[in-house]
Amino acid sequence: MLDVLISALTQGLIYALLCYGLLISYKILDFPDLTVDGSFPLGAAVTALLITNGVHPLLTLPVAMLAGALAGLATGLIHVCLKVRDLLAGIITMTALFSIDLKIAGSNLPIPRGVDTLFTLPALDALLGSVSLSGKKLIVSFVIALLFKFLLDLYFRTGSGMLLRAAGDNPVLVTSLAKSEGKAKILGLVLSNSLVALCGAVVCQEQRSFSSTMGTGQMVLGLASVIIGLTVFKKLSFVKLTTAALVGSILYKFCIQAAILAGLDPSLLKLITAVLFLAILAVGSFERRRKGGGARA
């Protein structure tokens, strides 16, 4: 039982990276970005290819982030320069990425036994000694999730981060500040997808394999987690968005784990996720209506 809990917690911490990404695109920029379903496996494909070719597991992470950043850039340029609608721009990049992932790593690329990942680094043995593999996984994912949470919190307080928040809040003001609203959006998508690709890279190292279908449904999964987190902390305005995303991600994974323990057929997972997501959205819109759209002009 403890093993299951630790595994769910580890998953939640790793997928927090995905949730940070969606926090930027969906919550801050109000951009439903389907690029995610392509940039997630892209990060995994890049890391699988590099790691099987002897590149250090840590070094694969920045490369995966860069790849994700390029994917976000593509969607941003398609949306801003070619004026393609947000949802379509993401779908176009996602579709193209499917082929690119296949070219990079084929339809399946396992990381062979004996090749070290983030979670089996010799340095970890020296540091943590006799901790079991699942314990190491938990600690490493905890460090990564918190590190990026703090980095993001810092970033949101910089001039660039504040402009990004303004771009989602009131795009007209960004223009008034003599900054291009389009460039701010593109920057947001670049950041968001680099985090998503990083998540894909870490997931790939954790499960020791890449598969071309691992991106399917990631956007909805991430959104569901983010919205769970935001809903839980709705009343507490001092809780940071990143904290809400982190906790949402963990709660989501616990829910899924509980459902599986209760005997749910794992092949129904995506269906359950979709229904859960729809339910959260429906409750949200119902509450808004009940309050009579109390937001002031």
Partner: peptide, 8 residues
């Protein structure tokens, strides 16, 4: 510039 210095 709206760069990486603190915004406030």
């Amino acid at each position: 510039r709206f760069g990486l210095a603190f915004g406030v």
